[in-house]
């Protein structure tokens, strides 16, 4: 009985968040004002964070809110306000064609994905972690990150330092 209630609420939250995220991501690619797009993108990222919580993965959900919805969107809004952007050109004939062709190709691509997901049952080798481990996963993530994935972790830190230095060098006023 209580299992049913839990599953019912999961379905309700999943459906609501799924439709909200699709709607807001459509808003991102259709708004003319880039600031509106950026704010809609925050909402998309928060919806995906809710999905991570629903998948019982609080660590990634928190990182999602801090890094994506916080840092990256903040940077984008900052740069948008730094640049004084004119309105995007409205579609001439050439642009219209490119929109139709690009959208058509992307929809074909979506059908490909849907076919791949639905046609075959999802299988794979299951790993050693119990659902309990996966739910309280910060400790397990730390253990795996600093043993099995130590080398990629160090590479990621070097990459971030290089990116910071690169950003500073690029945006420095020359002369």
């Amino acid at each position: 009985m209580s299992e049913n209630v839990v599953n019912l609420f999961q379905w309700l939250i999943f459906l609501g968040v799924a439709f909200t995220s699709i709607f807001t991501s459509l808003l991102v690619i259709t708004r003319k004002n880039p600031i509106h797009s950026a704010l809609c993108m925050v909402l998309t990222f928060l919806c995906v964070a809710v999905l991570y919580v629903l998948l019982r993965n609080p660590f990634i959900a928190i990182i999602q809110v801090i890094v994506y919805a916080g840092a990256i969107v903040m940077l984008i809004v900052f740069v948008l306000m730094l640049l004084d952007l004119e309105e995007e050109l409205r579609s001439g004939l050439k642009l219209l064609y490119s929109k139709v062709i690009g959208g058509g190709l992307a929809v074909l691509f979506l059908f490909g994905i849907l076919y791949a997901v639905i046609a075959t049952p999802l299988t794979g080798k299951t790993g050693p972690y119990t659902p309990d481990d996966l739910t309280n996963n910060v400790r397990v993530i730390g253990e795996v990150l600093f043993t099995q994935y130590l080398f990629p972790f160090e590479i990621a830190s070097i990459l971030l330092v290089a990116a910071i230095v690169g950003a500073v060098v690029l945006s420095k006023k020359s002369r």
Binding site: I63, Y68, A71, I72, I76, A156, L159, A163, A167
Partner: peptide, 13 residues
């Protein structure tokens, strides 16, 4: 996420 943060910094610069 780490890579996309780096990408955001360099790309926006």
């Amino acid at each position: 996420m780490a890579v996309s943060a780096a990408e955001a910094a360099v790309g926006l610069a």
